[in-house]
Design a protein around this nucleic acid. Structure first.
Lengths: 214, 214
DNA sequence: TATTTGGTGTGACAATTGTCACTTTAAATT
DNA sequence: AATTTAAAGTGACAATTGTCACACCAAATA
């Protein structure tokens, strides 16, 4: 199992090399061999083309080309490349991009002790995400439905109204669906908007899709 | 490492037990011990309470209580339970639910050879998703492939307008941002709404979050 | 050159929308 | 029983919004 490590901190790169090669001690496991280390996205792209490793372990924040862009570049010409991100950050944007471009893993450096196992799993065709990363997935996937309506003093009817607005219904339609007068819908709307500090129903719909059901 | 297997097919359960215990042969690895096997969600819940295993490997489609519901039940009283789904299906709804309830893994039975590694990874705090499963994640997360504005004859300016509406801006604010008159914004809006067969800006915002940038 | 096309703009208009003050009613609290 | 509270409704009002007919102009096209 041939691995390339790319991290802009040489000390980190070396540590990872040690961890990886130490983690391949057992006879029954495939041996892990770190065939090269790089220190930037540019270098990572070149090293991949040169060595075609089984796995590339890569940092995200790097000088010239960041890990995400480098991975995109690599995958564009090597569709089945195994790229495993190892980084300090759980930034949602990073996770999102990593998933979309088809990374085989996303592990935090604080969990790097599990890196050998992760690499083995990836080589077996699995994909590995560190726990801190997967904690974010439900939110990224939407409807963790954990929005705290109570914190804003939003009542049940108001909640219903929000959902109907987010379906694009007019006040009249909402009134009909909720069996209340159109005027009451207006009052409810007014109440919701002021509680959430929004201006109109369109902002409410946006708020819904961004904050409540992202 | 104490494991419980829950699968409504006893033959599968037994096979998994063999695979798991065979996969823990190496001295340096923690030994895997299958302390019990169950054949239904109900049984799974009881067995978990009884043994408090390190990992529970569970099928999803089962007779009385399905795996998802059983896991929800278990997690409600054991917040840090490690539950790993092993199933035949990549149904998006299952994956979604599994992620939301905080499962530590979702592996297809066809990939069960990697189960020992997966269990070890989970015990190290990682979360493991089989490749077929993760293939679905980008879609579940909202596809990166962009909405086909051309198919609806939406122009560049109209595209800009859509994004600003989806930010909750008023016509006046949009006019200011786009350096055009408010009347023109109205005309653009009218054009967009008719092209997309929508009624008002709120429906446009909903459309944006549901169809364009889900 | 003449014509079409598309983007931009204006003004008028009706409908929808959000706010406000106030009433009514029912339930909860004293 | 008396009071308070909350939900529901009404009507008036101004602002915003969407539609439409029409005008202007520059670039492309015939």
């Amino acid at each position: 199992m041939r691995v390339i490590i790319v991290d802009d901190d040489p000390i980190v790169a070396m540590s990872l090399k040690v961890i990886l090669e130490a983690g391949s001690g057992n006879a029954s496991d495939e041996k892990i061999e770190v065939v090269a280390t790089g220190s930037s996205g540019r270098e990572g792209i070149d090293l991949y083309a040169q060595h075609k490793p089984d796995i590339m372990v890569m940092d995200i924040r790097m000088d010239d080309i960041n890990g995400i862009d480098a991975a995109t570049e690599i995958l564009s010409s090597n569709k089945d490349a195994n790229i495993l991100f190892l980084t300090t950050f759980t930034d949602d944007e990073y996770i999102n991009k990593a998933l979309k471009l088809g990374a085989k893993g996303y592990i935090l450096k604080q969990d790097c002790a599990g890196l050998p196992e992760a690499c083995k799993a990836v080589c077996k065709g699995q994909i590995v995400y560190g726990s801190k990363v997967v904690e974010r997935l439900p939110d990224l996937l939407g409807r963790s439905s954990s929005f705290d309506f109570d914190a804003y003093g939003i009542t049940d009817k108001e909640q219903t109204l929000i959902e109907l607005v987010a379906d694009g219904l007019s006040n009249k339609e909402i009134a009909s669906k909720m069996f209340i007068a159109e005027g009451t819908v207006r009052n409810l709307m007014s109440s919701v908007l002021s509680k959430l500090d929004l201006r109109d129903r369109t902002q409410l719909a946006c708020f819904y899709y961004q904050q409540i059901k992202p």
